[in-house]
Design a protein around this nucleic acid. Structure first.
Lengths: 148, 148
DNA sequence: GTTATTGCAAACAATTTGCATATAA
DNA sequence: TTATATGCAAATTGTTTGCAATAAC
């Protein structure tokens, strides 16, 4: 099993940010560092809370601005699960990615990977004559009845 | 190629609504009738606009309430594409469904179906030991370079 | 008549923006 | 020094709600 995110994301992101002429400022760096240790979805609110815990808080405006910048640069994925809150997660520079299952009983969001699914999507792009640049898959599920 | 939605949705929905003890009131009926002729995604705002055109407008509150009811009854799918607006579409009672491709150049949303993808998801549920109750797939794509 | 439904306007929550100030380069 | 970043507070946007009036059954 591979790790979903690793330290390379942090370096990669810093490089991309610098390359875009942006500065290593306190507010944005705090967001970047937090995301680097986080493989799966976080809301802006959750990010604010965690940063407050470590005293590296920024204003909500700063957090939203940082996330927008990171998203524009392709460094984070934005994900709307349908409850009116956006969630963010780092984009692994290796291209490896995962998708999400929303557990209906608990509301938990758990990541998963599936080769067959990825292959199906690749084939689909060819069939439709389109260049598929990205994809999101959201499953809603519950523990199988009679399961463990 | 099969039609994605057909008149049976209208009848089915009316039946389900009646069965739930709800009335055939003007506002909700207008929303239901509009959705019945619409196979793919509409925002609440778009629904309001179209209803205004035909004079069958309701207040936005009524439209949202109707959509919420329909969603609770499993008659519509709600779909958050990540721009902060929810989109809705009828759920075909036959169980047949489609997914969406957001065209990056135009912003258009086009529906597609793919058997292999559906099979991959089915297999995935089994592999994970979960009962997958629903799934959404969103592709972002652009016309293939050198394409038709 | 009873109960669901509506409209209005106010309430909300998440996110965005203007602008003066602070800060990295 | 100079452009980028920040904080604050006000503004927006999409959606929800309370409540009195209205319409289905």
């Amino acid at each position: 099993m591979h790790r979903i995110t690793d330290t390379s994301w942090l370096e990669h992101s810093n490089e991309v940010l610098r390359g875009a002429g942006l500065r290593a400022s306190a507010g944005r760096s705090a967001v970047v560092e937090l995301l680097a240790c986080q493989s799966c979805l976080l809301t802006a609110q959750e990010i604010a809370d965690r940063l407050r815990e470590t005293g590296s808080a920024g204003s909500t405006a700063t957090i939203y601005r940082a996330l927008e910048t990171l998203h524009d640069l392709g460094l984070v994925r934005r994900f709307d699960s349908g409850e009116g809150v956006a969630r963010y997660e780092p984009v692994n520079p290796s291209g490896e990615h995962h998708h999400h299952i929303v557990m209906e009983n608990s509301g938990d969001v758990v990541p998963f990977e599936d080769e067959e699914l990825e292959r199906a999507i690749e084939g689909l792009g060819e069939r439709l004559g389109l260049l598929v640049t990205s994809h999101d898959i959201i499953l809603r599920a519950r523990p199988a009845s009679g399961g463990p």
